[in-house]
């Protein structure tokens, strides 16, 4: 399934930061949702800002428009405020993109677990993310750091406990 671009993607002024505050808010909201849905479609978890600048998301070659570095940073900052992005370094060159926040992932995982009656079972992280059982689930192939975070979020709610096992980490759901 190919990625479906929003209408704004073909709208040339979308790539210019709007001077009007109200319009800019709409624009940034649209950019955030575009960036997240693009990462989700391509299962991207980390972004390099230099690479991002050249990726088709921010650089629409067909209409010869691209979002400036400054504008990209503003969009990323907006995402960070919403809890969908985390910088990996102080210079803001690399970031983690969480097109689902850890709590949302946790919820999805817990739903799957309880649906299959495996509450009170211990899983290894590998099993959860790469096991055969979870192949059709959305969290299949989830990166380790993300998985741990989502499980930690569940742990906060008292629905799971992350345990250390000899060959890595495991999790028990309640």
């Amino acid at each position: 399934m190919s990625f479906e671009w929003p209408w704004q993607y073909n709208f040339p002024p979308f790539f210019t930061l709007q001077p009007n505050v109200d319009t800019r808010q709409k624009q940034l909201a649209a950019w955030c949702s575009l960036a997240l849905s693009y990462c989700r479609h391509h299962k991207l978890y980390t972004l390099d800002i230099m690479e991002a600048q050249e990726s088709p998301v921010f650089n629409h070659k067909n209409i010869d428009r691209k979002l400036s570095m400054e504008a990209i940073l503003i969009v990323f900052e907006e995402l960070r405020k919403k809890g969908n992005l985390e910088w990996l370094d102080k210079n803001k060159t690399r970031c983690l993109v969480m097109w689902r926040r850890p709590e949302e992932w946790g919820k999805l995982i817990y739903q799957w677990v309880s649906k299959n009656g495996m509450v009170n079972t211990v899983f290894t992280l590998y099993e959860l993310a790469n096991g055969d059982d979870t192949e059709s689930e959305e969290f299949h192939g989830l990166e380790d750091w993300m998985l741990i975070r989502s499980l930690q979020a569940l742990q906060m709610d008292g629905k799971a406990e992350v345990i250390s096992m000899d060959d890595g980490k495991g999790v028990k759901f309640f």
């Binding site: 709208f11 040339p12 002024p13 979308f14 790539f15 210019t16 709007q18 001077p19 009007n20 109200d22 319009t23 624009q27 010869d64 428009r65 691209k66």
Partner: peptide
Amino acid sequence: KEGLAWLDSQ
């Protein structure tokens, strides 16, 4: 200003 138009400076 009225949000009816968008600026394209590129």
